[in-house]
Structures are given as C-alpha cells and as structure tokens.
C-alpha cells in the first residue's frame, strides 16, 4: 500500500471516529457504557487529525483539504468496482489491477481518494 494512502486511510478513520463522537446515539453509549468524556476525546482526536494532515505530502494535503472542505469524506472505499463516495463505477481495468492500493488513485467522477477494499 502506498504510504500516503495509508495516512489518508488513517485520517479518514479518525474523521469517522470524530463524527461518531459528535453523533448523539453513539456519543450517549460511549458516555454511558464506556464512561468516555466526549469533549476531551474530541479535542484529542482533533490533535491527532492535525498531526496526520501534517504528514501528508504537500500536493496530497492540498487535495485532501479541498475535498474535506467540500465533501462529507475525502477518501472513499471501492467495493465491486463502485466508488462509495459517489456510487459511480471506477474504470474496470484499473480496478482489477493487482496492487491497486500501491498508488494514489482518485475517482474520475467525484475526485475523492480511492481505497480498494478486498
């Protein structure tokens, strides 16, 4: 896997975790069952997110920031050849390549970074 794609995945997962803690049902469960303090957790997550963004290469960081500013998520999984960001089919040849996560790919339609899930 491309090291920058690995960072993008980590970043997207952190953003998902952040959003989950902002979402009432999960936040309530985290507080009630796990005694998590959401406000503190969100602050910690924000620091981690900033750290990972800093580790992105400048070009990728710029694109990530543009996408993150305009879309709900900047990295989309691809399942069965479909980008799960915009639900449009990705090019078949590329999608079937071995080692397809070894480079940074973007969706032709929505521009999101793509991660192929096996």
């Amino acid at each position: 896997m491309h090291p920058q794609l690995e960072l993008l995945l980590e970043l997207q997962d952190l953003q998902t975790q952040r959003r989950a803690l902002e979402d009432d049902p999960l936040r309530d469960m985290e507080e009630a069952v796990f005694e998590l303090r959401p406000a503190e957790a969100l602050d910690l997550l924000q620091v981690k997110i900033a750290e990972v963004i800093d580790r992105l290469e400048p070009g990728i960081r710029r694109r990530y920031m543009d996408l993150a500013g305009n879309l709900d998520r900047a990295v989309a999984p691809v399942l069965n050849g479909i980008c799960y960001g915009c639900f449009v089919a990705t090019p078949t040849a590329w999608a079937s390549e071995a080692g397809r996560n070894d480079h940074i790919g973007v969706c032709d339609y929505c521009g999101r970074f793509l991660y192929y899930v096996d």
């Binding site: 997962d13 069952v33 005694e35 998590l36 899930v117």
Partner: peptide
C-alpha cells in the same frame, strides 16, 4: 481516548474503519 474495559472482566474494543 478511554479504555473500552467496561468492568466485570469484560472489554469491548470497537471502531469504524475503511479496511
């Protein structure tokens, strides 16, 4: 962020991930 050990000798680690 906080342990997922909920007591009574049980833990429930959890997360969402693209992988």
């Amino acid at each position: 962020l906080g342990s997922t050990g909920i007591g009574r000798r049980i833990a429930i680690p959890h997360c969402r991930s693209l992988v």
